[in-house]
Every structure is written in structure tokens, then in C-alpha cells.
Computed example of a mutant assay.
Amino acid sequence: MQGRFSGRIHRAVTRAEGEAGLTKAARCHTFGRTIVTPLLEEGKDIRAIQELLGNQDVSTTMLGAIGMPYMANVLTI
């Protein structure tokens, strides 16, 4: 994630991670991947999701769709 809020968001995620006592690191990147599947299931366009996440390449966005075998044909570049 880039932009003027990325530092604040990263710090907030890191702080929440510590407060929750997580043993595995959570990062902003993780949340981006987590949101891709539900958006695709709702029928949102992969390019729109790409733009929302700020990914330069649609293949990066598609990584969040791993585990969606029924989307394999749709997501082939």
C-alpha cells in the first residue's frame, strides 16, 4: 500500500497485532489478499479490485483469489 496514509496504517496494524497477542505477523498486505475473494464472489471486476488495492499488475491482485478453483478460467491472463 502506498500513499500518505500507508505509514499510519502500518503502525496501526502493528500495534493491533501486539495488542491481540498474535504469534504470526499480520500485515496490510494480508488484508488486501483477504478482501479479494469476497469481492470476486460478489461479482466485482478484477480490474476494479486491482485499482482499489493499488496493485500495478493484475496478477498481483489475482494472488488473493488463490483457493477459488471455479475462478481459474476467469482469472487466466
Rank of each mutant, 00 (worst) to 15 (best):
D57R: 15
V36G: 04
I35H: 04
G67A: 09
I46P: 05
T34C: 09
L52G: 09
I49N: 12
I66P: 07
D57K: 13
P38F: 02
G43R: 02
I49K: 01
L63G: 05
L52E: 07
I46D: 02
I66E: 15
Q56Y: 05
N55C: 08
I46H: 00
T34L: 15
T37W: 03
I46E: 05
M68D: 12
E41I: 03
V36W: 06
T60P: 04
P38K: 04
L53K: 07
T61L: 08
Q56M: 04
Q50V: 00
L53S: 07
V36M: 07
D57E: 12
A65H: 02
G43D: 04
Q56P: 02
M68H: 09
S59V: 12
T60I: 15
L40P: 06
T34I: 07
R47D: 10
Q56W: 02
T34M: 11
T61C: 13
I35A: 14
G32F: 02
I49F: 01
D45S: 11
T34F: 10
Q56H: 11
V58K: 02
E51M: 10
K44H: 10
I35P: 01
T61G: 13
L53N: 00
Q50N: 03
M62L: 13
T37G: 09
F31S: 15
I46Y: 00
R33Y: 08
E42F: 00
P38I: 01
L39H: 10
G32D: 03
G64C: 12
G64D: 11
G32C: 14
I49D: 02
G64L: 06
E42N: 06
L52M: 14
D57H: 15
T60Y: 04
M68P: 01
I66K: 14
V36P: 00
D57N: 15
I66L: 13
Q56C: 11
P38M: 03
V36A: 03
K44Q: 11
T61A: 12
K44P: 00
V58D: 10
T60F: 14
L53I: 13
V58C: 01
T34D: 04
G32K: 11
F31Q: 12
G64W: 06
D45H: 06
